[in-house]
């Protein structure tokens, strides 16, 4: 007989308050890995609550390890995030061919090189984190036109994985859990979201994909869509538009790049090259 999410809830509810951690351990001993994988957010968080409430015994930690190893809510890599983003934007050929996990790490490196002294640890400007994005970018990513459903699913997945890992390590960081509904609270401000690197690892490529989509136009190559997208991501809209007007070409990147270099905007050109290489 498989153990369902509803079974988890009813078994825990039927147990006395003092015995619930033992019941939670027994549920995890009796469940198959397939059962555990099928459990929803509420079931996983109810088990977590009863395993971390009060003293954490060796049995509680072992049960937490079983839960963390088998739950559907696993940590996510940048490559996982990029794969989801490509699926959502499957109709855009440039996003399919040009957006890669390496693009994101190259973008982090390019932003890091350009941060001023103290930025990120002493103070934050209007843009935050390794990808240097602001609230409006975060709002765009969470818009129903773009990645709202996928981001919420991602955030739920990685925040549960994170809290399980921390709980095994003995920490009690439950700030993203609403215990009254046994649900995950997804940060509404980018300042809060960016504290979780795995949330940022979704938001950054998602926002770049949005900018690539907006940079897609007839006659423009996929590689150039990427470069225009990166330029707008980096706040270069005004200088790129002026360059297009100056060279009389609103499709290709090469003449824009040549103009930007001619007027001394080498760092902006370098940024685009570093991210798109």
């Amino acid at each position: 007989m498989p153990i369902t999410s509803a079974d988890v809830k009813s078994k825990l509810a039927a147990a006395s308050w003092t015995n619930r951690d033992n019941v939670a351990c027994q549920i995890l001993k009796d469940a198959s890995s397939g059962d555990i994988k099928s459990w929803n957010v509420e079931a996983v968080l109810r088990l977590l609550y009863n395993l971390v409430d009060g003293y954490r015994s060796a049995d509680d930690i072992a049960a937490l390890k079983t839960l963390a190893a088998n739950t559907a809510f696993q940590p996510g890599s940048i490559a996982d995030a990029v794969s989801i983003i490509k699926t959502v934007k499957s109709g855009n050929p440039a996003i399919q061919t040009e957006l890669k996990a390496a693009t994101v790490t190259q973008l982090y490196a390019a932003e890091n090189k350009r941060m001023s002294f103290g930025e990120g640890w002493l103070y934050e400007g209007s843009t935050k984190g390794r990808g240097q994005l602001g609230q409006s970018a975060y709002d765009d990513v969470r818009n129903t036109k773009h990645f709202k459903a996928e981001y919420e699913a991602w955030a739920t997945r990685v925040l549960i994985a994170r809290v399980l890992k921390k709980s095994i390590e003995g920490y009690s960081d439950f700030r993203q859990i609403d215990w009254s509904t046994y649900s995950i609270v997804i940060p509404s401000s980018y300042g809060s979201a960016v504290q979780f690197t795995d949330l940022e690892d979704f938001v950054v490529p998602a926002y770049l994909a949005i900018k690539m989509q907006a940079a897609t136009k007839a006659g423009r190559s996929a590689a150039d869509v990427m470069k225009f997208g990166i330029a707008v991501y980096h706040g270069m809209f005004a200088s790129v538009s002026a360059a297009q007007t100056a060279v009389g070409d609103s499709v290709n990147w090469a003449p824009v790049e040549a103009h930007l270099l001619a007027i001394g905007k080498k760092d902006e050109v370098d940024y685009v090259k570093e991210v798109s290489k």
């Binding site: 765009d140 225009f228 707008v232 706040g235 809209f237």
Partner: peptide, 29 residues
């Protein structure tokens, strides 16, 4: 999200004035 974009410096839009119909149009970067 199309011709009107937002970057870290604010909102941007491009309009082209034309000598023939439609005389004005919004353009992507």
């Amino acid at each position: 999200g199309e011709e009107l974009q937002r970057d870290r410096h604010g909102f941007h839009a491009i309009f082209e004035l034309l000598t023939e119909p439609p005389y004005v149009r919004a353009a992507r970067l």
